[in-house]
């Protein structure tokens, strides 16, 4: 197993006003990630799908130890990295990279494209000088930025959004990482170009044997690339399974609602939908019992009292719902 995450939690303290500090001792927390477990195999594409506020981005940052977990365990390539110091974790960074959503913000505008991609090679002492340059040119070619010599010397300002994201991918992949966290890598890319970016990421995965933790709000994108998908709601995984199983046989009412809300390019529309009331509640006041019960069209009395555990319903397909026991 490449990555094993067990009962991971991240609580952010809520800043109190002056009056609140006087009146109450009780700390309040945003329970952004509230006890999730999952694992990723070598070379696997595993997607975390959820709405804003589901905790998916926080999970990605926790896994890479870019922020400190409140509790839980993260094991990467058999090594427990949960409480490693910054110094201890540094040599592992070449094996765990990240691609961000915004290709305009993630690149240094004063750094030439070639230098930006070379940077990780120098930091991790993988190569330098001519050798590093050769590796960067080869990588530019692989990500479709040709002729590579021209792109090596250009600045991000002269590139389109799609080209910038290719640079970000080249930079993340040049160390041939074992795990890449990709946080909404195509949501700011023009629709006509998205598939080519996704295809590029999948090609590089095949070539380097990297695994992806793919974070997205878009189930259609997740379906296109993932081996397995986990659906998150308010800091918890409510359903996880192989992509095919999840789409053929969605079990959690939230998964069903999410699936039925995705626009499908079919005119006449307005298929039969599972309508949900309201919006995702605040992660400060998480509902008791099943955290989805306040919006669930199928909730019954048990749901507000007892939190359901993830149970295996068919091989490799887990759901946390009292309807499936």
């Amino acid at each position: 197993m490449l990555l094993e995450v067990t009962d991971l939690k991240k609580y952010f303290p809520v800043a109190k006003t002056f009056i609140e500090r006087i009146l109450t001792k009780e700390e309040r927390y945003v329970r952004a990630v509230d006890g999730i477990s999952f694992s990723i195999e070598e070379g696997e594409v595993f997607s975390l799908v959820g709405e804003s506020g589901s905790g998916k981005t926080t999970t990605g940052k926790l896994v890479l130890r870019l922020i400190e977990p409140t509790s839980g365990r993260i094991v990467f390539q058999g090594t427990d990295i949960t409480s490693m110091s910054k110094k201890e974790i540094r040599p592992m960074r070449r094996h765990m990279q990240i691609i961000y959503q915004d290709p305009y913000a993630s690149l240094n505008p004063r750094m030439r494209v070639g230098e930006a991609i070379m940077d990780p090679l120098l930091i991790h002492r993988i190569a330098q000088g001519r050798e590093a340059r050769e590796m960067v040119l080869e990588m530019l070619e692989k990500v479709g930025l040709t002729p590579p010599e021209t792109f090596f010397n250009s600045y991000p300002a002269y590139l389109s959004g799609g080209q910038r994201q290719r640079v970000a991918i080249a930079r993340a992949m040049i160390t041939r990482p074992k795990l890449v966290v990709a946080d909404e890598p195509v949501s700011m890319i023009d629709v006509s170009l998205r598939a080519s970016i996704l295809d590029l990421m999948m090609d590089l995965r095949r070539e380097f044997g990297s695994a992806y933790l793919f974070i997205t709000h878009d189930l259609a994108v997740a379906k296109y690339i993932s081996d397995r998908i986990a659906i998150m709601y308010l800091g918890k995984i409510v359903e996880v399974g192989r992509t095919r199983d999840l789409f053929r046989n969605p079990l959690h009412p939230y998964t069903k609602a999410l699936l039925s809300a995705i626009p499908v390019p079919t005119p006449g529309r307005r298929r039969e939908r599972i309508k949900l009331k309201g919006e995702i509640p605040s992660a400060i006041d998480i509902p008791t019992g099943c955290r989805f019960h306040t919006r669930c069209p199928l909730a019954f009395d048990l749901c507000s009292r007892e939190e359901p555990e993830l149970m295996e319903v068919e091989p490799g397909h887990f759901v946390a719902c009292h309807l499936h026991k």
């Binding site: 998205r194 499908v264 390019p265």
Partner: peptide, 24 residues
């Protein structure tokens, strides 16, 4: 026509998406 080939449809199995080369 090409834009239609580039957008995913969750109701289809094993769909192959095709991007439009270049950019606007």
């Amino acid at each position: 026509r090409e834009l239609l080939k580039a957008i995913p449809n969750v109701e289809l199995e094993d769909q192959k998406l095709i991007s439009i080369p270049g950019s606007p």
